[in-house]
Design a protein around this nucleic acid. Structure first.
Ligand code: FES
Ligand code: FES
Lengths: 133, 133
DNA sequence: CTTATCCTTACTATTTTAGTCAGGTTTAAA
DNA sequence: TTTAAACCTGACTAAAATAGTAAGGATAAG
């Protein structure tokens, strides 16, 4: 049940952008600062942009910035995008046997508690911390 | 962040044994009933036994049974054994940068809420459900 | 003694994750 | 208007984790 490296990188990048909310930061810069492989980060940022969390500017002096303020973006949303879902279940949410499936009822409870926890943590709450890796 | 097949099988097997608390059930029987590959289940059961959740009897008419009553075993304990840990963090709990690591603080919060949730669910609470796969 | 069962270790195959690469598109600035 | 710095995309490869298999030994009932 570990979180993927991809997600971890994404969270770190988002926190870094939250700290630098007024600036546009390039992937190159961000990758260096956070010690993340540049082309890998590029993919991650593209996903976060497509999901509507970032806006990008192309060309020289271009880069990324948060689309909303750090106190409007939850870690839950970031993780949901990067992990695909926050549910630990192995079968789709519309599974026919869902009703009455013991394992599923347990996994659904886990999902609810994760969601509740993460929807309460905003990027803003994390920018005070000193290390991000 | 999905749970492994191994863990899912393990939970199902434990629930099945909870239903049949008075009997000794062989792996063969259990594997058939729950549609789990027999030699794979064998490994899983051995882990649960080594961790102290099951007791086994060898030889003909042998098999497994729960070591404690279904109202004394939590799903949290079962999952902890099968997953190794309930923490989604990628680095060990003694990581040097743990203090002040933003990502870690988020992952630790997730772990706490998962643990709280799962330590409240006993096998007993699940034996009423009709389907287990 | 034979057979059913657990027990252990080692192996293989499959799937997922992590990361790379190549080449295209946009845009600021010289 | 050319150049270069950035984003953008999709396909590819490598590594790691997971799922599952195989082989053979140990124990105990009948
Ligand atoms: S098998 Fe799909 S919900 Fe349990
Ligand atoms: S790097 Fe180990 S706790 Fe964050």
């Amino acid at each position: 049940m570990r979180v993927s490296q991809r997600t971890e990188y994404g969270i770190r990048a988002m926190i870094a952008l939250a700290r630098d909310f007024d600036d546009v930061v390039s992937i190159k810069e961000l990758a260096e600062r956070e010690a993340i492989p540049e082309p890998f980060l590029e993919q991650i940022m593209a996903d976060l942009r497509r999901a509507g969390l970032l806006k990008s500017t192309r060309g020289p002096y271009g880069g990324y910035r948060l689309k909303s303020a750090p106190d409007e973006i939850t870690v839950g949303r970031v993780m949901e995008i990067l992990e695909g879902t926050l549910s630990p279940a192995r079968c789709a949410s519309g599974c026919a046997r869902q009703r009455g499936c013991s394992t599923r009822s347990v996994l659904d409870r886990i999902e609810r508690s994760i969601t509740e926890t993460l929807d309460d943590i905003y990027l803003k709450d994390l920018i005070g911390d000193t290390v991000d890796e």
